[in-house]
Amino acid sequence: MAKLNLKTGKSTNYKIRQSLTFSESFKREKVEDILNKRISISEFCKLWSISTTSVYRWIYQYSPNHKKGTKMVVQQESEAAKTQELLKRVAELERILGQKQMEIDYQSKLIEIASKELDIDLKKSFKLTL
């Protein structure tokens, strides 16, 4: 197994990897374990010395909910809570904006009525120059 390298004088060890073959029932069982979060994909790969590509291939093949090409949107609870908080904030700001617009409309109408009553154009008389 050890081979002597003539240039450096050091021996090199080569490890021959054994080919593993798993039964379909084993694959189905392990896919179920992974999907039910009894074991993580990385732990499973280390335990059985297989690649993550193989595990994902099993998941695509044996899981009814995880087919290749489907996209899942994963949103953490904190992100969902943050989104709800921002939506509430937007609604509150829209409400305040609506109130301010009503105040402006009210004041404009009041100036218009006062101008008619006093027979003076208050908008021209009291224009501020900045």
Rank of each mutant, 00 (worst) to 15 (best):
D33G: 02
D33V: 02
D33W: 13
I34R: 00
I34T: 07
L35Y: 01
K37M: 04
K37R: 09
R38V: 05
R38F: 11
R38E: 08
I39D: 04
S40D: 04
S40W: 01
I41V: 12
E43Y: 12
E43L: 10
C45V: 07
W48Y: 12
W48V: 10
S49C: 10
I50F: 02
T52A: 08
T53L: 06
V55R: 01
V55N: 05
Y56H: 09
Y56D: 11
R57P: 04
I59W: 00
I59M: 03
Q61N: 07
Q61E: 12
Q61S: 05
S63D: 15
S63P: 01
P64A: 11
N65A: 05
N65W: 01
H66F: 15
H66S: 10
H66K: 13
K67S: 14
K67A: 13
K68Q: 14
K71V: 13
V73R: 11
Q75G: 07
Q76D: 08
S78R: 13
E79Q: 12
E79R: 00
A80I: 14
A81N: 05
A81G: 00
K82G: 06
K82E: 08
T83S: 06
L86S: 09
L87P: 00
L87V: 07
L87D: 04
L87T: 07
R89A: 15
V90D: 13
A91K: 09
A91F: 08
L93E: 11
L93S: 05
E94A: 00
R95Q: 13
G98L: 10
Q101D: 06
